[in-house]
Structure formats: structure tokens, C-alpha cells
Design a protein around this nucleic acid. Structure first.
Lengths: 146, 146
DNA sequence: TTCCTTGCAAACGATTTGCATTGGA
DNA sequence: TCCAATGCAAATCGTTTGCAAGGAA
């Protein structure tokens, strides 16, 4: 398990939450950072192998979430899918395939992202609600299922 | 249980799926149409009372979903929340409170909705993905939690 | 009569937790 | 040494299903 620049940032973040950046947690982060979209505990477990029991995987995800390293998404069928938080992975959106359920990342060109951001601000000013994040997901058919 | 125009449309839709628009299903629809946002089975059960067992509630939701009368959302914490489909309720978006978890409907002024729609089209043309729906959610703090 | 629907209880799958053990600073 | 982290098994929670009884066409 090599330590990247990303890893050292995460280590700092974890230690500020009295948590260690252990082998198991590094493994989860590495696996997540290598996948092109949010992944569920089951999917991670399948990819990592049974070296790490599911319960430990869930516990790792819980700690990483509390420390703001990963973020859960609940797009379909009631399973939580995790991905690295925006400060690690950058802001992006998701493509959700209605057929196979696959979730992939989508980074918008800056100009589009700017439009979305403007829209969020304008909308926020019209309702009694303080926007913090926005989620903009496209549901449709991926290239394979189209 | 009064029958509204909405109800007769739903009845037609259900019967085309060999399903009846029974008292229980009417109750679910009525409750959903009265709430200002997507509701989970548990929330519906709490509101309806134990007249309808949870299992029946789930079954009603399943039938209504198959017939396209209700649509599930999985915004937070892994519980499915249902709402009337767009052809019954109109297109809209959601405000999700990060603090209390409440989900409320948000109808955008036509001009904004137009912008969102344009954006979806433009984006769709840049990726190998066929957009069918879009979900645009604002996460933030509701007036009570702000 | 024929099927769809419902209720109850049992089954399920995803996730969490208690407890004893291991491991890192 | 001391407390966090882990593994295992049992528990929990939301949701689903088998089966027998009830209800509408």
C-alpha cells in the first residue's frame, strides 16, 4: 500500500478525528479512488476479496464518512454507495443507468458547471431554504444498455 | 374515501395492469398526494395508522410503482421514499435538509426549468449516455434547521 | 367461480453491534 | 501501556414472500 499525497491528507483528516489511517482503511480508499463511480459495500467487498470481512468494511466506511473522507449516495434500490468526498475527488455529478443500475461519474465542463451553480443560487434565493450542496443526476441508459 | 379526477385516472392506469384500485391503495395515494414530498413506507404507516399492516402498505406501493403511479426515491439513509409520478404530480425537484432529513418538493419557475432542461440536453450530447430523466436536488438546511 | 388482495408470520438482505482479541503510537 | 481497530457471530432494520383467508367482478 503506497502512500500518495492524497493519503497523507486523509491521514491528517483522520487523526484530527482521533482515528488511525490503517491498512484496511487505506485499502478501502485506494479501491474507491480507483473506481469510476460510487461503490457499495458489497461491490467493494467483491473487489477487495474476503481479506476484509464485511463488518470491517462497513466500519471502515463509517469512520471514513464521519471524518468526511467518503460520502454516501443512495441512488437506487436501497444500497448505499460510497465515493471520495469532493475535497479529495473534485466536484462532479452522476450518470445512473436505469437498466443495469451502474453509476458513473460525470465531470461537467467548467461552463456548464457555472450554469448549474448560478441556477442553484437563484433558486436558493426564491425559497426559505439554504442550499449547501447540489446533486444533479442524469438517469438514462448507459452505452452498453442503450 | 372520495374519488377525485386524479383517482379515476389512476384507476384506469391500474386496470390496464390488471390491478384494482382498492381501498388500501386509495388510502396510500391520498396520503401521498397530501404530503409535500416523498414519504417512506414507515412514514406513511405512521400517518395512516395500523389499519393497514406494513406488509400491505409495501405491497400497495409495489403495485402502484409497477403501474407507474408512484415513483421511489432513495435520497437519504437508505430508506425508499415514494411520491406520485410526474404525470400525476407534475415535474419538480427536491429540497433535502441535511440536518433533519426532511425532503420537500420544489417546483421551479418555468424559466429555470427551461434552463435545466437545456443543460441536460447539452450534457447528454457530450457523453455516451442517453438521458431519460434528470434529478436536481438541493441539499441544505430547511427553514427550521437553518 | 375465478383471481386479485390482504393479513399474518416467517424469511431476507443490507447494515450494525457486543464482545473478546489484536495492533499501533 | 492504552485505547483504537478488527473479526466473528448475533442482532437489527427495512423490505419481501409463502400461504391461507377475504373480496370484487
Amino acid at each position: 500500500m503506497t502512500t500518495t499525497g492524497l493519503d497523507s491528507e486523509i491521514e491528517t483528516r483522520l487523526s484530527s478525528h482521533d482515528a488511525r489511517y490503517t491498512r484496511g482503511r487505506r485499502l478501502v480508499v485506494a479501491t474507491l479512488s480507483g473506481s469510476g463511480g460510487p461503490r457499495s459495500a458489497g461491490e467493494l467487498h467483491a473487489q477487495i476479496g474476503s481479506t476484509m470481512p464485511l463488518s470491517s468494511l462497513y466500519r471502515s466506511l463509517a469512520v471514513l464518512e464521519e471524518s468526511g473522507v467518503v460520502v454516501p449516495h443512495f441512488t437506487k434500490s436501497g444500497v448505499a454507495r460510497y465515493e471520495l468526498a469532493e475535497w479529495l475527488q473534485g466536484h462532479h455529478h452522476h450518470l445512473v443507468c436505469l437498466d443495469c443500475g451502474k453509476v458513473e461519474d460525470l465531470s461537467l465542463p467548467h461552463s456548464y458547471e457555472e450554469k448549474v451553480r448560478e441556477l442553484v443560487e437563484e433558486i436558493g434565493s426564491t425559497v426559505s431554504f439554504t442550499p449547501v450542496n447540489h446533486a444533479f443526476e442524469l438517469e438514462g441508459l448507459c452505452s452498453r444498455c442503450a
